[in-house]
């Protein structure tokens, strides 16, 4: 075989392997989504949304878990977003070269990559143990701790994409700095920041590990925030691991609901930045 043929062959083989690798990755995505549809759809009935989680062996739904998940997610996002946006503002607007900004940027990355179960353990230590019982508050704080680093990161990135000439133009018109930031910079970066918040929502709505030790679960309809609260991920975990068939069916329904909501959120978040990306 000539050197030329050998090189061509190497190229063809490696390129085919690359196509195969892509095929494998996509195949797993399809396999997982297909599994969810196959096991989730047959049991996806109206009662899944209207009835509470049942005791073993009887019919029921996921209403309390869905509402609980919504409460925890909204709570986590309400705490995490303002803090995250303000911290991101500091990093991009005030702190630029400062030492505090450098440290916070790094520490934020640490928080971003911290295993979520460690966050659960931390919140258990500081809240559940001191309060003496599991509660929706603790779950909310755990989720907020996951939201914060995501929002800090995306807001800083998006604010930095706003060109300095725009800031200078506003300042030249006599606008004070807070007005420049809140009226000009935020407005220009809004789609990007919104994307970050949506991605954070998508991320926390599937989080299970931190809720195991904080919000725990509740078999009943509960709106009390200082009590354990039902939530989809933990219900899915408990029901999937249970020997009861009814529970396992509900676990698949929950898995289907959660995954497809998250996929939709992700796709919506993407369309926000598409085309309307702030000018670099």
């Amino acid at each position: 075989m000539s050197l030329y043929q050998q090189r061509r062959l190497t190229n063809i083989i490696s390129m085919s392997l690359s196509v195969i690798a892509t095929g494998i990755a996509l195949a797993f995505l399809c396999w997982i989504l297909w599994t969810l549809l196959r096991f989730g759809v047959p049991h996806l009935t109206l009662s899944a949304f209207t009835q509470n989680t049942p005791p073993p062996g009887s019919q029921g739904g996921l209403a309390n878990a869905i509402v609980g998940s919504l409460i925890l997610t909204v709570g986590g996002v309400l705490i995490g977003t303002p803090l995250g946006i303000l911290a991101g503002t500091y990093l991009s607007e005030f702190g630029r070269g400062s030492r505090l900004a450098m440290v916070v940027r790094f520490v934020n990355d640490v928080l971003l990559s911290a295993p979520s179960i460690v966050i659960g353990v931390f919140v258990y230590e500081i809240m559940v143990r001191t309060m003496g019982h599991f509660s929706a508050y603790a779950g909310t704080v755990a989720l907020a701790l996951i939201v914060i680093p995501i929002v800090v990161r995306t807001s800083e990135d998006m604010l930095q994409l706003v060109s300095d000439t725009m800031r200078e133009a506003a300042a030249a018109l006599g606008a004070p700095q807070w007005k420049v930031i809140t009226h000009i910079v935020y407005r220009a970066a809004r789609p990007g920041i919104l994307t970050g918040v949506l991605l954070a929502i998508a991320r926390v709505s599937g989080e299970t590990a931190p809720l195991l030790f904080t919000a725990l679960n509740n078999q009943f309809w509960s709106m009390k925030l200082d009590q354990p609260i039902a939530n989809l991920p933990v219900v899915i975990f408990q029901f999937a691991m249970s020997p009861y068939e009814d529970w396992q069916h509900l676990a698949w329904v929950g898995a289907l609901i959660i995954t497809f909501s998250i996929l939709v959120l992700n796709i919506v978040a993407r369309t926000f930045t598409r085309g309307r990306r702030p000018q670099a």
Partner: peptide, 29 residues
């Protein structure tokens, strides 16, 4: 000027909170 420093203070406090949270995790563990 007051609003400027308030706003700047709020952002700096938030940034410091992120730092404090990570420290709190390490210390608590």
């Amino acid at each position: 000027r007051v609003r400027d420093s308030l706003f700047r203070g709020a952002t700096r406090l938030s940034a410091a909170t992120v730092f404090g949270l990570v420290m709190a995790i390490v210390i608590a563990l």
